[in-house]
């Protein structure tokens, strides 16, 4: 071992921008490096949904507000893939970093907490939006896409991916074992997604179940996204976006507080 003269280290960009881009690059390269675990499974799963529920069963179901059943479920299934991908990406990368202790690389660095949070969330956003595009491409093999408002489509997908990335991060912070990162997706996320209007319009439910569904936040995301494609929704578009933004702010505040306190992160 020998020592060389130290170089003069400077960068033109702001340290915060460099730090964030480093995390974004790291997260993105991981997604592509293990694409068979990150990108392929949701494409295979939704293809099966398209084939079974859309083509085989859907052909026997009456049109919903003028659209075929498969056209009706495509936005919901894409949103389901967005929710699952964003959540699972962040919860697994964060918990992996915590268990292998390389999260300490970030905790000892001068990066502010919000940049570290943004870095992890960026991975969830990239993966879920990539999955959304792939699933939409696959859906073209089963039906033709109707697009009503691109901006609403993008905004709903983006905000949903941010929201569930933050939820995955909070889960990762609290989790103490691998069981801890599986309980929420299995027992909370999946039931809420299936009951969130992916496969049906809540307007067709009995009043009690319709009103109960209004407490399910995923209903608002699915409907906002579906509005972007088909121009129809079971709930107000403004309410949908308000629900997403409020939940994002709540989860962001919780994540920042947990980082500041060091709960689940520091001794």
């Amino acid at each position: 071992m020998s020592i060389s003269t130290a170089s003069n280290l400077t960068s033109k960009r702001s340290p915060i921008v460099v730090g964030f881009l480093t995390m974004l690059r790291k997260e993105t390269s991981r997604i592509f490096r293990i694409w068979s675990q990150t990108l392929l499974p949701p494409v295979v799963t939704t293809s099966l949904y398209f084939a079974i529920f859309g083509t085989f069963i859907g052909s026997q179901i009456a049109k919903i507000e003028g659209f075929s059943y498969i056209q009706f479920i495509v936005p919901g299934l894409v949103m389901m893939a967005v929710i699952t991908s964003s959540y699972s990406n962040v919860v697994s990368t964060f918990f992996g970093a915590k268990m292998q202790r390389y999260l300490e690389e970030l905790l000892v660095s001068p990066l502010p907490d919000w940049v570290v949070i943004a870095g992890f969330v960026s991975g969830g956003i990239v993966r879920s939006l990539l999955v959304a595009v792939l699933v939409l491409v696959v859906s073209l093999f089963f039906t033709h896409l109707v697009i009503f408002n691109v901006l609403v489509i993008f905004a709903a997908a983006f905000l949903t991916s941010v929201l569930f990335s933050l939820a995955g991060l909070v889960n990762g912070i609290y989790a103490k074992s691998f069981d801890g990162i599986n309980i929420v997706p299995t027992f909370v996320l999946t039931p809420l997604t299936y009951l969130g209007g992916v496969f049906y319009s809540v307007n067709r439910l009995p009043v009690f179940f319709k009103e109960l569904s209004l407490f399910n936040p995923i209903l608002y995301m699915v409907n906002a996204f579906r509005y972007g494609f088909l121009g129809i929704t079971d709930v107000s578009l403004y309410t949908s976006f308000a629900v997403m933004i409020v939940l994002i702010l709540v989860l962001l505040a919780l994540a920042l507080w947990l980082f500041k306190k060091g709960n689940g992160l520091k001794s």
Binding site: L9, S14, P15, I16, V18, G19, T22, E105, S109, P110
Partner: peptide
């Protein structure tokens, strides 16, 4: 990556 967390860009830290 560690250099990146300290605000030093990839191309600047390579040497």
């Amino acid at each position: 990556n560690q250099a990146g967390y300290y605000g030093i860009a990839r191309k600047d830290i390579m040497p």
